[in-house]
Design a protein around this nucleic acid. Sequence first.
RNA 1: GCGCCCGUAGCUCAGCUGGAUAGAGCAACGGACUUCUAAUCCGUAGGUCGGAGGUUCGAAUCCUCCCGGGCGCACCA
Length: 552
Amino acid sequence: MKQELQEKIVSLIEKQIPEIKDFKTKIKLDIPKEEKFGDLSLNAAFLLAKALKKKPFEVANQIKEILEKEDIFENIEVVGGFVNFRLSLKFYFEILKQAIEEKDEYGKAKTKDKGTINVEFVSANPTGPLHLGHGRGAVVGNVLSNLYDYYGYFVEREFYINDAGKQIRKLGESIYARFRQIEDPSYPFPEDGYHGEYIKEIAQHLYKYEREKILSMVDEEQAIDFCAEFGKEMLLERIKEDLKSFGVEFDIWFSEKSLYTSGKVDEAIQFLKEKGYVYEKEGAVWLRTTEFGDDKDRVLIKSDGSYTYFAGDIAYHYDKFKRGYDFIVNVWGADHHGYFPRLKAAVMAFGVPEDWIRVLFIQLVKLFKNGKEVKMSKRSGEFITLKDLIEEVGKDAVIYFFLSKDSNTHLNFDIDLALKKSNENPVYYVQYAHARISSVFREAKERLGIDIENLEEVNLNLLKEEIERQIMKNIAFLPDQIKEIAIKEQPHRITQLTYELAAKLHNYYYNYKFLNEEDIELTKARLYLLKAVRNALRTLFKLMGITPVEKM
RNA sequence: GCGCCCGUAGCUCAGCUGGAUAGAGCAACGGACUUCUAAUCCGUAGGUCGGAGGUUCGAAUCCUCCCGGGCGCACCA
C-alpha cells in the first residue's frame, strides 16, 4: 500500500517538478514515530532543495500545493522540510474491508509469482536431541520461510541430515559400548563418546529387541555400524517429532550420505573441473576458491583419497543449484561464519551471482539458571533440551522468545524467568489482545444478538476517536511492514509489529466500551474494526506459528 | 596476527539500511476494577547510543582509528 501511495505521489509531483526523477530511489515515504507528524511523511523536499536551489521549506510547500487536490489526503502539513500527510477515512475504510475479507492471510500475496526459493535450517546432526540453539534456528528459519511465502515466493523448507562421517561413527561406538555394558559393566566407553542418557535408552532398546542379532555379529565393526544406523534413525524420528510439536515441518529431508552413495560428489567435482577451477597439488585435489574471494584454496579430495566435508557440501549445493532456485537461504550457527566464504566461492564457481546464496547466522543461546550461566555440551550430555523447554513453558512462549531478538546477537535465556509463566513473557500480552476480542464477540452475540460473521452494513463514519484512527493506520500499513521484514530478512521484527498492534488494542479496550445497547450502530462499527484487528493479529500469529487463543 | 559478529536505561533488548525530542518490557515509584477478562490501562523516574575523529541539511545508523566481549581461522565434521 505504501509503495503504491509513494508511486502515486511521486508521479503527481513529477508533473510540476521533473527534477524529482533523479531522486526516486532516495525518496522515502515514512510512517512517523509521532502522531502529530501525521500518518505519512515525505522527505522529498530535502533532496530537491539543492537541485532547485531553494530551501527545503519552500520546496515542501510547493509539494503540498500539488498534492492538496487529491482526495485520499485529509490534511497536508509542512514541518521544517518534511511534508506530512493525514490520510482520509475513506482510504482507511477500504483497508478495513480488505482485512476482514482476507481473514488470517491479510495482505498476503495472492500468487507465488516472485519466484522459488529454498530455506535450509536446523540441519542438526542426528546424534542427540535438539538443544536450544537448534530451537532458535528452527524458529528463525521457519518464520523467515513464512515471511517469504507471504511476500509471494514459493518456499521449500529443507533439513540437511549430517548422516555421514565421524559423528555418526562416534554415535555407533557410544551406543555399542552402552549395549555391551549392560552385560559387562567394565566394557570401555569411548573417550569422546556421547554421554547423554538417551544413548543408554537406545542401547536398552537394542538390548531388548536386537540382542541376539548384534551379539551374533562376528565383526565388531559391523555391530557398531548397526548401532549407528539404528541410533541415527531413532534420533531423527525424535527430532522430527520435536520440530512438529514446535509447528515446524520440512518439505525435504536431504541425506548427506546419499551424496556419496549416488556419486553426486564426483559429479559436482567433475562439473567444477570442466569449468577449470580444480587442480592437483601435493597429492590432493583442490578447488580454486580464491578466484571468488576466499583467502585460500580448499581441498576437495584428501591425499588419502577420501573426500573432505567441504566436497560433500559442494555436491549438496550443486544439487540445489540444479534444482533452479532463484536464491537459497541457509540458517547456520554463528560458529560456522568462517565457513561461508569458501562455500560461497564454490557456489559462485557454478556460475550463480554472489547473492544467490545467503546465510543467516544464529548466535549462541546462553542459558541462565539461578543467575548463573549453564554450560551446555552434547558430550557431557548435561543440557536442557528443546523438548524440555517446550514442555515446561509451552511452544508459544518459546517461539516468541526466540523470535523477539535479532538472531545475530547473543541471546541470554533466563530459564527461571521463562518457567515462571508470568506476564513477564510478552507472548501473553499479544495473546491476551486476541482473547479479549474473542470475548467481546462472544458477549456481542449473547447480549445483543450481533453475529460477528454477519456484519454487512456498518456506518464506519462513526469511528471518530483518535485511537480508532491509529488502529486503522496500523492495520493499513501492516502488510508493507511484513513485506519489508521479509526482504530484509529480519524475522525478529515481527514480534514488534504484533506487540504494537496489541498495545493499541489494549488501550482501545480499556478506554472505550464496545457493546452499547443504546447505540447499536456505533457498536457495529466498532465490532467491524475489532474484526479487522483480530484478522490482522491472526495473520501475524500464523506467520510466527503462535496459537490465537480465544480465552485466557 | 587476520576475519566475522556484538557493545543503546539498573537488567533483557528494539531502533524499519541516514530523518524530527533515541524507544519497549522487566525491575522501582504513584494512580485506575460495581464495566466487553486488571495476564490490562495511565503516569513518574531512569541515557556521554563503548570512545575519538570524519562524511552532510541531518549520524545510534555510513567511513577511519582505538577500547571491551564473543566466535572463527584444517588434507575435522
